[in-house]
């Protein structure tokens, strides 16, 4: 599904991402962990063709993402508020992303029903533009918009950091369900080791732009990670 060939990115001479080779198969749930500045977000941006790699290439379904735009048809993502259109109401934003993903309004409404509990009445029909929502609710809007596109690959940057505990649990459940139903390929980054080891089938530990460990989640994984992050 995803092939990374010798990709590297540096800012002002400082290495941010440097990955010689990486293969991610369909249906894998990848957790990216690492301290701030390890290169997680930049790696996601490279995957989404938002920054130019200094060298190397990334292939999605064997097609170079910097050459063909086909990957957009099956990839959904939410990295930060830079993905939200602040002057739309949440509904308008959902319909907008839905429409681009060929989903009708009815589809979107149906999908949003699942989210109703999470939104807690303060997102849908709130009478606010997205820019006036609280940070947490903005984040929920972004995640929901990514999920409703019915993608094959989903990329979420620190999805748990800005969510309340209920929403975290709910999101984990939804991701697991979508994964089971459609063999969705999921990439998330997180600082929450418990969550990551709970849902991810494979964990990539990043440091200084490099993937220093590539772990298939097992019983000792959490311990191993805790060992690494120990002060």
């Amino acid at each position: 599904m995803i092939t990374v060939n010798n990709i590297a990115k540096a800012y002002a001479g400082k290495r941010v991402v440097d990955i010689p080779a990486l293969q991610i198969g369909q249906g894998e749930i990848i957790g990216l962990v690492g301290n701030n500045g390890a290169g997680k977000t930049t790696f996601f941006r490279l995957l989404l063709d938002l920054v130019k790699a200094d060298r190397g290439e990334i292939l999605l379904k064997d097609k170079n993402i910097a050459v063909s735009e086909d990957w957009k048809n099956y990839t959904a993502s939410y990295l930060d508020e830079g993905f939200l259109i602040g002057y739309l109401t949440p509904e308008e934003y959902f319909y907008f992303t839905g429409k681009l993903a060929n989903r009708s309004k009815a589809d979107v409404d149906e999908f949003l029903k699942e989210f109703e509990g999470l939104f807690d009445g303060s997102v849908i029909k709130s009478g606010k533009y997205i820019r006036d929502l609280s940070k947490g609710n903005q984040f929920k809007v972004g995640i929901a918009a990514a999920l409703l596109q019915d993608p094959e690959i989903i990329i979420l940057d620190e999805p748990f950091a800005n969510l309340d505990p209920t929403t975290q649990m709910r999101l984990i459940k939804m991701l697991k369900e979508m994964h089971e139903q459609r063999r969705l390929t999921i990439l998330i980054s997180s600082h929450d080791l418990n969550h990551v080891t709970d849902i991810c089938s494979r964990i990539l530990l990043m440091e200084g732009g490099r993937i220093i460990r590539d772990l298939h989640t097992g019983q000792d994984t959490l311990q191993e990670l805790q060992e690494y992050f120990k002060v």
């Binding site: 735009e69 990295l79 830079g82 992303t97 681009l100 993903a101």
Partner: peptide
């Protein structure tokens, strides 16, 4: 510019 990342990572072709 505030949501250009989203537009470019989104589905609309350039």
């Amino acid at each position: 510019s505030s949501h250009f990342d989203g537009l470019m990572a989104g589905r609309a072709p350039v």
